[in-house]
Each structure stands twice: as structure tokens, then as C-alpha cells.
Write a protein that binds this DNA or RNA. Sequence first.
DNA 1: GTATGATTGAAATGAACGTTTGAATTAGGA
DNA 2: TCCTAATTCAAACGTTCATTTCAATCATAC
Lengths: 216, 216
Amino acid sequence: MSLATKERILDAAEGLFANHGFAATSLRQITAVAEVNLAAVNYHFGSKEALLTAVFERRVVPVNQERLRLLDGLEAEAAQGKAIQLEDVVRAFLLPAFNAVEGFGQQGAKFMQLVGRMHSETNEQLRAAFLKLFQPVGQRFVPVLRQLLPTLTEDEVMWRLHFMIGSLAHILVCTQLEEPLMGKLARGGDLVEALVQFNTAGLTAQAPAPVGVRRA
Amino acid sequence: MSLATKERILDAAEGLFANHGFAATSLRQITAVAEVNLAAVNYHFGSKEALLTAVFERRVVPVNQERLRLLDGLEAEAAQGKAIQLEDVVRAFLLPAFNAVEGFGQQGAKFMQLVGRMHSETNEQLRAAFLKLFQPVGQRFVPVLRQLLPTLTEDEVMWRLHFMIGSLAHILVCTQLEEPLMGKLARGGDLVEALVQFNTAGLTAQAPAPVGVRRA
DNA sequence: GTATGATTGAAATGAACGTTTGAATTAGGA
DNA sequence: TCCTAATTCAAACGTTCATTTCAATCATAC
């Protein structure tokens, strides 16, 4: 029965953190949704912060593992002489996030909304835990991107990677909202493919002309 | 002296909301930073939520006015037969946000971080106020984008607009952070131009092939 | 100078928060 | 069956929160 309790708490916390944010969600709300006793959170997880960490580890670890697995596959092909396509790297980065949504159903959608939200979280402790989960992904993808975009400076590559992360995080949050800014968003269709094409084109865009050469 | 009090509260709230989020910031923190009495917030603004609204209206209104002014300029040129360039529309959308940062100095940077954060805010009341400020911008930019990207479906255009918004919001938050995910971000250089090029390329990317035609 | 209205100040209100406590209950091996 | 450890429960802890109150202070017009 304890395992069911832990899972129910994680599910409830995932949904509420995604909907209202970490600070705006109380343990009383979580335990009410999970239909468990208030003290169960501190008993099973230790603290509210530790609960958030647990919520993340349950889902992020598999997503980032899948990202690295796909990148491994691309590099294995490259070792056999087949050139790595940027679009495939973009796909390796973006797809696991969306596949997780489908794999975990309604809960997965909530979680991805939470991930999008966490990308703009500035609480230091929470960021530190979040950072740790994504560091291995950055360490692998950045060098590959730099190699595929040799005309760009290192700063440019990092910027563009963050543009991509931003487009992903934002769309994950917005597609869950009833009323996003500036008009409704379709949910079905091939959103993933649109995201892949957008970011592949953005990453490969010609480097901006140096200041002074550009037109007014 | 009252005007100075209101301004000091707005400045303090802007910085703290940006750094820690709305729910995680207390009025006591705000009034401490502003060096005003605790009751001054409720006296001048009515409530904590009304304060956030005031923080936004002070800055967002001018930014969105500038966006529309730039778009007006482009459409005026178009009326004289000169074709509108997508890149200029992208610029009209992205530049005012960055110009505001420079115009308002350190406070502007904090505010832009707050804007980025608000894009993933899901509290209904806050979103409603936020939405109202951006609706006129959407109403003007969406038709122009649709006209400039005639091969895309309406859903595709909306998606790509949100990809752009996401890249903007994310970079506004991340460039203010000590340690963004996946590696440090340069702050100087021509970040704006990089963002413009990235999004222009992304928006003009060829529409994804229909499902089934695409390669595995 | 004094009356008046706007602003500030210190203190208190009641509610909600995360966390802790210790007794009651449950589950499983001896 | 009984013992033990794990889990659940109701209640309370101390703290912090947004907001309110009302007296003190300020600016200003008469």
C-alpha cells in the first residue's frame, strides 16, 4: 500500500506543480488530490523540495537517457562513414520529450508542462537539482552541434541551442493551456515535426553579418 | 514623496518577482528592499496581485506600442509598393523587448526576465491580465505572418510564432542567470541579431512533409 | 498658524504554510 | 498467534503570509 501512496503523491504533485508552480502549490493540496494523509509527504520524501526532486527524477532520467541513446546511434553510424545530419541531432534532442508525453499519457503531459516551467525557475536549490539532471545532455550535444555548425562562434552555438530549448519549453507549456497568448494553439497534427523543421532551419541560418556591415 | 514610494515599490517588486517568482516573493521582502512600510503596498495598489499587474503595465504597454509602431511603419512602406520582408517583421517583434532592456537599464533586464517567467505562468488571474496586454500585438502580427508564409497552414503559423516567443522568453530569462542549463551563455555580442536570424530562418523553413512521406 | 486630506508607521489579525509528534493501525515473518 | 517494523492518522507546532487597523506624521491650501 506504501508504494501506491508514494506513486499517488508523485502523480498529484506532478499535476499541481505543473499547473500552479512549486511555490504556489501546498502540501495540503497535494495530499488532498492524492487522497493520503498530510504527513505522508514528509514521511516518504522528507520535505517539499525533496518531493519536487523525486518528481523530476522519475521522468527526466529516462528522457535524457533516450536523448543520449539516440545520439549514440547517430555517432555509431558516423563511425561507419555516414555523415551526421543536423536534423537528426535536433530530432534526438526534441523527440524524447514528446515521446515521454505520449508514453505516460495524461501524466506525461502534465510533467512536460512542469519541465517547461522549470526552465524559467530561478530558485537556486531547485535549479541546482534540475541542472544536475541536464548536464550530461549538454556535454554530449554541444560538441556535436559545434562540429556540425563550424561557421558559428561558440557563443552563437550556445545561443541557438538555448533558442531551441526555449521553443521546446514554451510550446510544452502553451499547448496545455486553454488560452495561450496571441491566439489558440492546435494540439494535434505534427507539432513535433514543425518544431524539428523550425529549429533545424534556425540552427543552420547564416551567421549574422558583423555589426556595421548590416543594413539599417 | 508618495510618487517616489510607488516607484520604489514597483522597482523592488519587479526585481524580486523576476528573481524568485510571484508566489515565492513576499510583500515583506518587497517593502524591505523598497525601504517603505509594509502597509504601503496595500495602500497604493490594493493587493499583491494588483501590484504585479501594475509592474507589468508600466513596461509592457510601451514595448507593445513600439512593436505596433514598427509594424505600422512596415505596412506604410508596403502601401507604397515596397514588399514587406519577413525579417523586418521578426525584428519589429523582437527588438522592442531588447530595447526596453537597454532603455531601462538594470531594472529593464530584471523586467524582461520577469516577462520570460510570466510566459510559463499558469495562474488564471495573472494570465488573464497578462493576456490582455498582448492581445493587440497578436491580432496585428498573426495576419501579417500568415500573408508572408502562404504555404503554411494556420496551425503551423501559430506554432511557429510560439516557437519564436519561446526562444525570446527563454533567452531573456537565461541570460540573467549565473548558470543556465547546458553551459554558460555569453551576454554581450549581438544576441538580438542571432535571435532574429534564427527565427527568420525557422519561420521560413519548408513546411514538413505530410506524415507517411517522411523518411524513418 | 491652523485645519484638512493624503500618506506613513507600528502593531495586530486570522489564515495558511511546512513540519513534527505520538498514538493507532496495518502487514508480514517467526 | 504474536511480535515487530512499517505505515497511516489526527492533532498540534511555530512561522510566515497578506491584509487591516488606527494613530502619528506630513504636505498643502486657506
